[in-house]
Structures are given as structure tokens and as C-alpha cells.
Amino acid sequence: MNARNSAYNFQNVTNGTEAELLRLQEQALMGWDKEYRTLKQFGLEDGMKVLEVGAGPGFVTGQLLDHLPHSEITALDIDDALLEEAKHRLRHIPESRIKFTHASAYETGLPDHYYDFVVARLIFLHLHNPLQAAAEIRRVLKPGGKLVIIDIDDGVFGAIEPEIEVIPSIIKKLVQQQASRGGNRNIGRSLPRLLSSSGYTDIDMDAIIQHSDLHGLAGFKRQFDINRFTGFLNKGIITENEYDELKQSYENFDRSPDAHAMMLFFMACGTKPL
């Protein structure tokens, strides 16, 4: 999504686009096995027509292609740079299996009643109008088709040891900053209500736990990389004292032989009525 429609802009990330791509890759793949297991429980099957909304650089798209060899996958994103990354990464996939769509989640331009299953991973927290996006996705779903939203809630984001004491106050400020830009970093708790308000039925919800003892520390270290917070300091969102404390705490975390971390992601599923 671009700045007018979303609180996320890949070109403006403060940690640099290469580091951001690595972060997104770790974020996508760390808990993929659990996410895929839950997607299957929600009804995802090989052979379905699947739409991925907010596909970004195509890390999850690649996993869907690998796990669903007889499915047609559409990867949709409004960010040209990210979509080009996805096209390059998946250039070996035949056009009969993968389609790339440069469009907004609010106006996909896709046909009515076409898809069996839609995956929207870590995009709804960035949307100015999530109800409009959910309604647009419902339009392109077949009757009986399903939307699964995978997202976060910073109110219950997880845990980290050694504890970074400044994290709660920084998270609170990031939540406020995201809200001022039209996003919602606490959207996880609202997903069932969002789906219901958008006309979906048979709503269900689950949580995915990513733990460094199970998935390795590398991905967690990228999430807390101090370079990601430099922009917040420069914009006055966090104070210099908070930044310095975060930097010192991160260095302690990075060096500690006992370091471990846990993050929560939420998955909510709704069905388009017959």
C-alpha cells in the first residue's frame, strides 16, 4: 500500500531496504509451518484459487506455491518495488501458476466470486480503512470462500529475556504513531469484529507462537535491530534517553547466552456466505 492508503512505506524504512527485506524474510518464514498448519485447519487445500493480499516481496507467496502445487496463486500489492522483488524471486514459476497484480486492497480490480481462499498477512494493521478492504476481498471470494487475516496486537506482542524495560513505553508510542497515520498496531483483538462487520460468517480465531528456542534468535534480533528505531528518534517519536536505553538493552540481549524471545501472531478466519 502507498502512504495514502497505508501506514507502511517500504521506500522510507529507516533500516534500509536491504535490511528490511531480510527482516521481512525472517518474519515470514520463522513461523510459517505453524501458520500453514492453521491455514489448512481453516480450509486451505491444494487446487484452490488463492489470493494473497499484500504479498510484498513474495516470501509467503513462494511458500504457498511450494505447498499448493496444483493451485493458482495471485500475489497482490500496491508497492511497485516490492512486487518487482516478488516477480524476480519467483521468476522460475510458470505464469499458469502465479499472477502478479499491482493494485490496492481497497480496489483490487479482480473479478467477482473468483477465489476460494484469501490470505492477508500483516497488512490490515497498516490500513486506513480495514472494513473497506475486507468488503472488497469478500467481493472477489466465491460464496463459501474464506478470508484469513494474520496480524499482530502490540498489547500482547510477546516477551523477551533479558527484559528490555523500555519496550512497553516505546511500543505505546509506536501504537499512537501508527494510529495517527491511519493504522492500528492493536488490530489483533479486533479481527473477529472486523470480519463480522464486513459480512463474513463462521468466524474463528487462533494464535501462533514464535519462540526463539524453536525458530532461532536471528529473526527476533532483526525485529529489535536498533537501526529500525533511528527514524523514530529523528522524528521525535521516541526520546534520546529511550533510544539509548533501547540500544544498551539490545546489546545486552545480543550478547547474553541466555537470551530468548517469544512473539504472538493472530489468525482470524471468516467465510463469505453462500
Results as ranks from 00 to 15, higher is better:
Met1Glu: 13
Asn2Pro: 00
Arg4Ala: 11
Arg4Leu: 10
Ala7Arg: 00
Tyr8Glu: 09
Phe10Thr: 10
Asn12Phe: 02
Asn12Ser: 12
Val13Gly: 05
Gly16Pro: 00
Gly16Cys: 07
Thr17Val: 01
Glu18Ser: 06
Glu18Pro: 03
Ala19Tyr: 07
Glu20Cys: 08
Leu24Pro: 05
Gln27Asn: 13
Met30Val: 05
Met30Asp: 07
Gly31Ser: 09
Glu35Met: 14
Leu39Ala: 03
Leu39Pro: 05
Lys40Tyr: 05
Lys40Gln: 15
Gln41Val: 03
Gln41Gly: 02
Phe42Asn: 03
Phe42Val: 04
Leu44Met: 08
Gly47Trp: 06
Val50Asn: 08
Val50Glu: 05
Leu51Phe: 06
Glu52Ser: 03
Val53Ala: 14
Val53Arg: 01
Gly54Lys: 04
Gly54Thr: 04
Gly54Val: 02
Gly56Gln: 03
Pro57Cys: 09
Leu64Phe: 13
His67Arg: 15
His70Cys: 09
His70Pro: 09
Glu72Trp: 13
Glu72Pro: 02
Ala81Tyr: 10
Leu82Ala: 07
Leu82Trp: 07
Leu82Glu: 07
Glu84Phe: 11
Glu84Tyr: 07
Glu85Pro: 01
Glu85Lys: 15
Glu85Thr: 08
His88Thr: 12
Ile93Ser: 08
Ile93Glu: 11
Ser96Glu: 12
Arg97Ser: 15
Ile98Glu: 14
Ile98Lys: 14
Thr101His: 09
Tyr106Cys: 08
Tyr114Glu: 14
Asp116Glu: 07
Val119Glu: 01
Ile123Cys: 10
His126Ile: 00
Leu127Trp: 00
Leu127Cys: 05
Leu127Arg: 00
His128Trp: 01
His128Gly: 11
Pro130Lys: 06
Ala134Lys: 02
Ala134Leu: 04
Glu136Ile: 11
Glu136Tyr: 07
Leu141Asp: 09
Leu141Gln: 08
Lys142Arg: 14
Pro143Trp: 00
Pro143Cys: 09
Gly144Glu: 08
Asp151Ile: 04
Asp153Val: 03
Gly155Gln: 15
Gly158Asn: 13
Glu163Met: 15
Glu165Met: 10
Ile167Arg: 02
Pro168Thr: 06
Ile170Ser: 10
Ile170Thr: 02
Ile171Tyr: 12
Lys173Val: 02
Leu174Met: 15
Val175Lys: 13
Val175Trp: 11
Gln176Ile: 10
Gln178Gly: 00
Ala179Gln: 07
Ala179Tyr: 13
Ala179Ser: 08
Ser180Val: 01
Ser180Ala: 09
Gly182Lys: 10
Gly183Lys: 03
Gly183Leu: 02
Arg185Thr: 06
Asn186Ser: 05
Leu191Lys: 06
Ser198Trp: 01
Tyr200Arg: 03
Tyr200Glu: 08
Thr201Pro: 02
Asp202Lys: 15
Asp202Ile: 04
Met205Phe: 10
Ala207Pro: 07
Gln210Glu: 11
Ser212Trp: 05
Ser212Gln: 04
Asp213Cys: 09
His215Ser: 06
Leu217Gln: 03
Ala218Asp: 10
Phe220Cys: 03
Lys221Asp: 01
Asp225Asn: 13
Thr230Met: 12
Asn234Glu: 15
Gly236Met: 14
Gly236Gln: 14
Thr239Glu: 10
Asn252Asp: 11
Phe253Tyr: 14
Ser256Phe: 08
Pro257Arg: 05
Asp258Trp: 00
Asp258Gly: 06
Ala259His: 03
Met267His: 01
Met267Pro: 04
Cys269Glu: 01
Gly270Asn: 08
Gly270His: 01
